[in-house]
């Protein structure tokens, strides 16, 4: 099975994009690099977690480190598109290894406030101070000589952002591959109408823009894929093709979401990812514990 692919730059100002697939969580992590300067950014890195035993591991993050070393790259940013509900972010681990700054969307503070209640963390700073930078719509930054720009893309979560880097956009949980459709919008803070508008903003990028998604669920057993273009999505995305209106889309999305169980790691992952990828502080016995609130999350189908 394909778990790695390099999408090469075809012109100055365009990045090389290396995708790494994690079959366990169906997530794609990326290393986006500037061929001219060998500077790069990491996007949506995965910290492995086995919820059955509570064990963590860094296999997937170490795969990124090995690639970066092999290619002689220098990491300027460790980026997340949103606080994920299906895997732990490896941002803190990678920051410890690499020293590069971490970043996420500024609305993460609202996600923090929401989950601070649910997890009952009275002393938790819900001010985004766990990251080095919080991005807002229209913010720009550089990776070597590559121009990067931030689009606010709420809907799947209220803090989701898209990174547009040269001719590549990292859309994470908005659009999936055209044959799978779009992300669910029923988590706390999700909104199908917002997701529609965020997707329209992405589809307004130039036709040839390379889109890199955050997950692939391999419909009908096909090989994993994670790259498409704006034109392909506009023409073929199964949730959007034809004359779908915002209301049609929101109705379809809500109906479909009502049949989905919660992702199996949502209660585990949010308490790590709202801390920027840091595990909770140890208890007096030196051991760390995650908390699972009982009967607090409702709405999704029974798993």
């Amino acid at each position: 099975m394909k778990t790695f692919e390099l999408s090469r730059s075809r012109a100055a100002g365009q990045p090389d994009v290396a995708g790494f697939f994690d079959l366990r969580t169906f997530s794609v992590q990326y290393v986006v690099s500037d061929p001219a300067t060998r500077k790069c950014a990491i996007i949506d890195p995965v910290h492995d977690f086995d919820e059955k035993s509570g064990a963590t591991a860094t296999h997937h993050a170490d795969e990124l480190l090995a690639y970066i070393q092999e290619q002689g790259l220098e990491v300027e940013w460790i980026l997340d598109t949103h606080p994920h509900a299906d895997h732990f972010s490896a941002a803190q681990y990678l920051k410890e290894q690499l020293g590069a700054p971490t970043a996420i969307g500024e609305k993460v503070v609202e996600v923090q406030a929401l989950w601070k209640e649910l997890y009952h963390w009275p002393d938790f700073p819900d001010d985004g101070s766990q990251w080095d930078r919080l991005f807002a719509e229209g913010d720009t930054f550089r990776i070597g000589e590559l121009e990067a720009r931030v689009m606010f893309s709420p809907g799947h979560t209220l803090a989701s952002i898209t990174y547009v880097i040269g001719d590549a956009a990292f859309v994470h949980d908005t659009l999936f591959q055209p044959d799978f459709g779009t992300a669910r919008a029923d988590f706390p803070g999700g909104d199908a109408h917002q997701l529609w508008r965020s997707i329209q903003a992405i589809l307004a990028l130039p036709d040839a823009t390379r889109l890199f998604t955050g997950h692939d669920y391999m419909p009908d057993g096909r090989e994993p894929q994670w790259e498409s273009t704006v034109r392909e999505q506009r023409e073929r995305n199964k949730h959007l093709a034809g004359n779908v209106t915002e209301d049609d889309y929101a109705a379809m999305r809500d109906e479909r979401d009502a049949e989905l169980p919660m992702p199996k790691l949502i209660l585990h992952a949010l308490q790590v990812n709202t801390r920027g990828g840091q595990l909770p502080a140890p208890e007096a016995n030196g051991k760390r514990y995650l908390k699972i609130p009982l009967d607090a999350l409702d709405g999704a189908d029974w798993d």
Binding site: E51, G54, H120, K291, I292, D295
Partner: peptide, 20 residues
């Protein structure tokens, strides 16, 4: 029986990390 509720009235189970 569930573990005792925290002060907010909410019951939590615990997941020990890297213990097993």
């Amino acid at each position: 029986h569930m573990p005792p509720a925290e002060e907010n009235g909410q019951v939590y189970l615990k997941v020990p990390i890297d213990k097993f």
